[in-house]
Nucleic acid binder design. Structure first.
Lengths: 203, 203
DNA sequence: TCCCACATACATACTGGTTGGTATGTTACA
DNA sequence: TGTAACATACCAACCAGTATGTATGTGGGA
């Protein structure tokens, strides 16, 4: 990686952190510059505006994290419900205090920016669509293999799963409580277990 | 209502609208003054700082709206699950485009301010506690009257219901789609129906 | 009943700090 | 000799907050 790429990447990472903490609007370019040691001239060489920097944070930083933590784990083989539960439990175990307090970076930006900037909204929506599709696909697969109830709609269910997950993270964020996250997650896992197809033993 | 109270109320309502749209940090006092026609001297006569104005918006405006729309309807007599479903469906029907785009005022503030200001966090938490208790109480009542499964924990369930509700509103807000809100709400209502105690007809 | 003292409820003008953005340089490499 | 990759200095706009002034009561003593 040449120096210019390193500079760009450092700016992206610092911007991600500042936006994660304060939101996009309250994130300060000066703080990002101070954090990186990069000057304003360099920043505006790589990004034409604060907005473009924010867009790049969504398209690169947040997108990568979403795929690593939530989408790639769903590609494993096995019972789809088991995979969903395991992914949620793993993410829950790995969560740090800081992440608990600051919540989901994607949801934070969605709630802040979707009403006031279409560029953010579309980029965030794109990520949600990728996430939704991967869960929907998993559920459909489970329905075809007889592991998941066929009475439910895969797309609707995927939507509710993501909504509940974001909801749990949001509630636990305000409560600043790992315990509340776990109790709320229990509710989601209960919902997921209820999606399993009835086993032949019930007949 | 004397003039001073009217002025204070006008400021609160304008502040609520500005904060609802832009968030607390990005909300501009000048915009609030312009909206009301009140001058800066009057604002700082009624509120000692922007923060205190924000606190008053939570304690008065948002608290009132939460009680009217979500807590009071739960006090009706009847099957607790029916009441919860009816409350959600009614709120869903009444939601305007603006409210869909801007989301839940309480959740917006929670996500924005809870990591950066303890005063906001505690006030918002207090409202969530009131909401939680009213749902928990409703579920407990249903368990005692045989309408709701006794295998679930009332407090945990109330927590998940609120989380999912906020999650659905958040997802629909970013999608800017009434349809997605309805599909997501369907998931929540399905979850609620699954909390009903099995009727004697199954035996 | 009159009048003064004081507080309430504002209004106006200003300040220091911060913001995102820009204009103009400079350095180094190709 | 150009161009990418910065660096420095500056700017207008906006921000929350404040200092100071004023108009309108209102309560209490003579």
């Amino acid at each position: 990686m040449v120096d210019a790429d390193k500079t760009r990447q450092a700016l992206l990472e610092a911007a991600y952190e500042e936006i994660y903490r304060d939101g996009f609007q309250a994130a300060s370019l000066s703080a990002i510059l101070e954090r990186t040691g990069v000057t304003k001239g360099a920043l505006y060489h790589h990004f034409s505006s604060k907005l473009e920097l924010g867009y790049a944070v969504v398209d690169e930083e947040i997108s990568n994290k979403l795929h690593q933590l939530w989408i790639q784990p769903l590609q494993n083989e096995g019972n789809p419900i088991d995979i969903l539960v395991a992914t949620i439990e793993l993410a829950g175990q790995q969560i740090t205090d800081k992440q608990l307090y600051l919540g989901c970076p994607l949801n934070n930006l969605a709630q802040e920016m979707s009403p006031i900037d279409a560029g953010f909204r579309m980029r965030i929506d794109q990520l949600y669509q990728q996430w939704l599709k991967s869960i929907e696909h998993l559920i459909s697969k489970g329905q075809h293999s007889g592991k998941v109830k066929t009475s439910i709609d895969a797309a609707d269910t995927a939507l509710f799963i993501i909504a509940s997950l974001e909801g749990c993270l949001g509630i636990a964020k305000n409560a600043q409580s790992h315990d509340e996250l776990e109790r709320c997650g229990k509710g989601l896992i209960g919902y997921l277990n209820n999606l399993r197809a009835e086993t032949s033993s019930t007949y």
